[in-house]
Design a protein around this nucleic acid. Structure first.
Lengths: 197, 197
DNA sequence: CTGTTCGCATACCGTCGGTATGTGAAGGTA
DNA sequence: TACCTTCACATACCGACGGTATGCGAACAG
């Protein structure tokens, strides 16, 4: 079983990202050592540093993968709706449900800003999952459904609201009805943006 | 100049917290070593470990101090208003302005959740600065100004919205009018919660 | 004056992220 | 097919870090 160099290269890189994702999600960025990552990936540190600039760069690759998946899920559920307003609400609900995974939270919401810095984290966020929220709000402002104020601040407010809410819902003290209460409260916030008819 | 043991103890502890706060705020938790902290504080690692269980425990003491100050500022500006609704809006605006300090942000919003874990970070937050938000919303729900749904989810949504907004406002690409736009968008979100009259 | 406590200094250790260098197989060329 | 080059790693090593065990002198209690 001889493999081409391109195949081997891609296989090694995928293995490192997969193992890194699992370990970072499980115990957090700081608690995972490179030695453990390369051991479980079946390679050595030489391979890791051949593919990435360091531990933070591997984490960045992991975060980008997680964000891509989040964005795809949100977009898919939102696009299933026809009306732009229903797309917004469906997308928000999809995000809250998709981000319920504690593994996703640890990488995307807890360690992400601390490891990469908030600005770089936001750049990845806006390039993937949070982009859809901004586009949905812009479309609604264009159509006159919501007030035509700048959408960028509103996007970050709502994005932050949902990010914090999903973390709260994932904590051990959360009660069964909290998810529904949170989605209801989020709906009230969104409905409040609608222009009075 | 002989000092009592209690005085000396308190002075050393204050020095460690003060230096830790300055360095953590300036370069982030991970980039600051204990050697630098104790050197600038004029003590040794023995003193640090005599007062705190470790690096994370020192950071926790720093975070608690920052959070206490934030809570005091928000409460002071909110209590200056008489009407409960104006108290809410004044408190939110005070938080956004007080949290504009990049040093506060790095400790309270970036490193806090990653270093202590989100649940412990939230416990400190709710015990200090975020507590006032929850109490204000509860009072408004009691008075019938806003809908009588559970206030806990709404508190976390709004807290997260403001946390993310202040980080966004502090980034280098922020434009002069962004602060006003953000406060306006926040006001619209809050106004949307009011029951129709 | 004496024994005890306590606040802190000193010396040391294991582990970590990072780097410099070696190596063998894949890929190109005649 | 012989040969050289390139590349995807492996190996060996280093400085720095967080943490710990122990020693010591001054403050306190009697």
């Amino acid at each position: 079983m001889t493999r081409t160099r391109a195949e081997q290269r891609e296989a090694t890189r995928r293995a490192l990202v997969a193992v890194g994702r699992r370990l970072f999600a499980g115990r957090g960025y700081a608690a995972v050592g490179l030695a453990e990552i390369v051991r479980e990936a079946g390679v050595t540190k030489g391979a890791l540093y051949h593919h990435f600039d360091g531990k933070a760069a591997l984490f960045r690759a992991v975060l980008e993968e997680v964000q891509q998946e989040m964005g795809a899920r949100v977009a898919a559920e939102a696009d299933a709706e026809g009306d732009p307003w229903e797309q917004l609400k469906a997308g928000c609900a999809a995000f809250v449900r998709a981000a319920a995974d504690p593994d996703v939270q640890r990488i995307m919401l807890i360690d992400g800003p601390a490891v990469l810095g908030w600005n770089e984290w936001r750049a990845i966020d806006e390039a993937t999952s949070a982009r859809h929220l901004g586009e949905a709000l812009a479309a609604l402002a264009e159509a006159g459904t919501i007030a035509p104020h700048p959408v960028a601040p509103l996007t970050r407010l709502l994005s932050g609201a949902m990010n914090e809410a999903v973390l709260w819902l994932a904590q051990p003290q959360a009660r069964p009805g909290d998810l529904d209460d949170t989605l209801a409260a989020l709906s009230r916030l969104l409905d409040g943006l609608k222009v009075r008819t």
